[in-house]
Design a protein around this nucleic acid. Structure first.
Ligand SMILES: [Zn+2]
Ligand SMILES: [Zn+2]
Ligand SMILES: [Zn+2]
Ligand SMILES: [Zn+2]
Lengths: 138, 138
DNA sequence: ATGACCGATGATATAACATAACATCAGTAT
DNA sequence: ATACTGATGTTATGTTATATCATCGGTCAT
């Protein structure tokens, strides 16, 4: 039932495992310092330790960074390779990771002008989730 | 010769004008603190002053924020309304603002899942510009 | 005019996010 | 045992952003 059972889990260091678990358990985007608060009990106590693990996990595609929030989130699919977008509720910060179809990815890269050859695309869609929608109020 | 002659220029406060000019003259994305350094001679001397003006200018669509760089850039088209993307050279930080066709904008908003009604989309494409491309080296 | 009001700007202080640089440790090759 | 190497711990600092309160300048009722 837990992530260690997945065949696609590369070997992670203790720090990386702790921080990935933290993000998976939280279910919401967390800042590096919010992560730090939650893993102090596990013996992680300095910002660079958190940022190092986050950078490693991002390289593996298991954690993504929400640029518009300076926050980090576990990949919604275990791991993925840059072909994703995020939808984010601006009221409650709920995040949904969207896998991009190849054609959408291609379309996005195709937006780049001639003078810049595209490598990677960041897409973050802000809006309101159903729970936060005004029509749903009281 | 100055911005006040443009018909599309809404009335800006002195601070807003200074900071917009600074960004337009720089031609590259600047952090809020880089802006602050450049407008000290004009009497602007505290971060909140810069951030206030930037937020006002962003509301007017005349300045955009590069989320992936925590930097600000003057709108490449005078002003625009959320229908844009950025292409950014990861080596030299050159930025090109791309106007999105309505259909592209619609496609992007359409990526949002049912549980989040989309309002605004951020697209930042990272790559290498011609000047920084390896094939062009030496 | 006077003073109440109000929105814009100035200024101080601090919060939040991120990394540079160096120390220490554990594993392994010799 | 010793030297090397890569990962982790630790200190210090740099960078980005905002909360809060003070002050100023114009509007308007008296
Ligand atoms: Zn993912
Ligand atoms: Zn919500
Ligand atoms: Zn624009
Ligand atoms: Zn370049």
């Amino acid at each position: 039932m837990n992530a260690a059972h997945h065949h696609d889990a590369p070997k992670l260091s203790r720090n990386q495992s702790e921080i990935l678990s933290c993000l998976r358990n939280s279910g919401e985007p967390l800042s590096a310092y919010a992560i730090l608060d939650r893993v102090r009990k596990s013996g992680i106590s300095h910002p660079p330790t958190v940022y190092r693990a986050l950078n490693d996990l991002m390289k593996k595609g298991m954690v993504h960074r929400l640029e518009s929030r300076s926050a980090f989130v576990a990949c919604g699919h275990g791991a993925c390779d840059g072909k994703f977008a995020f939808a984010i509720c601006r009221a409650c910060d709920k995040v949904v990771e969207i896998l991009l179809a190849d054609k959408d990815q291609a379309l996005l890269l195709g937006l780049a002008p001639d003078e810049i050859s595209p490598e990677q695309v960041t897409v973050e869609i802000a809006g309101l989730c159903n729970d936060c929608h005004p029509s749903r109020l009281a």
